[in-house]
Amino acid sequence: MIEINNLAFSFPSRDVLQGINLRLEEGKFYGLLGENGVGKTTLLTLLCGLKKPKSGTIRIDGRSPFDRQPSLLQEQFYLPEEVLSVHATAAAFAREKGVFWPKFSMEVFQRLLEGFEVDARQRMDKMSAGQVKKTWISFALATGVRYYYLDEPTNGLDIPSKAQFRKAIMQFTHEDTTLIISTHQVRDLENVIDPIIILDSKEVLVNASIEEIESKLYFDYGQEANPAALYAEQTPGGLIQVYPNDSHAVSKINLEAFFNTVHHHKEEAKNLFGNQ
């Protein structure tokens, strides 16, 4: 369980997060969305202990991540957007580093790499950026930790690898695994992330499950414009419109349209999802 209370963080030149309150439950794959610069990466680095909160607290199973206690580090994995290339083969890299995570499985690592079609005998400094990323994703999932903080994991992946990434996440995580994925590529992860957290500059606009979103908003894919729509977007096949789901009708969420709805109606979104 991750509990964030009144979290604030600022860089010398600007404030990033202010008064953030979140409660992240076990076994859920959170999608962390937000515009550029609102503090998604900062929040992830605060969660994994790379940064110290300016004020407020983060507690992960009662522990503060900035203490960087080995027992907590063994239960978490932070995958940055830009990963490091090392002067070793993928297999040697995993063998040497994997010893620090008690549940790390070399077999799982090899299987994941095969799925991504990366040769474990290849040197990482000779790989393309996408292959290095796939190696890190494979390593991360092979650690078998409880908390994953993934920053734009699908950036730089080719189309088959994005599908493989979704498959790997579903296959190699456990019931108690908590994933927090920061992404702009919502279509890549549309069927994976649930609940959705939308960060605005300095605050949380939405923290809601897909079910809750679909119960409160109606996603209309018809041809006729609805004047009550909070958001409307012309697509090649017609329109996507989002409006309050007063009639409790069933519809399928479109994450991009949902994000844009929240982005254009921040106060309404906060009221609707109880984040005032």
């Binding site: 680095t45 202990g49 790379l50 960087r68 080995p70 580090l73 994995f77 990963v83 620090f100 995570w101």
Partner: peptide, 16 residues
């Protein structure tokens, strides 16, 4: 940034 973060996230204590 990248190398430092990788170092800090290795599960060992600061003293070690």
């Amino acid at each position: 940034k990248k190398k430092g973060a990788d170092f800090l996230m290795v599960p060992a204590s600061t003293l070690e």
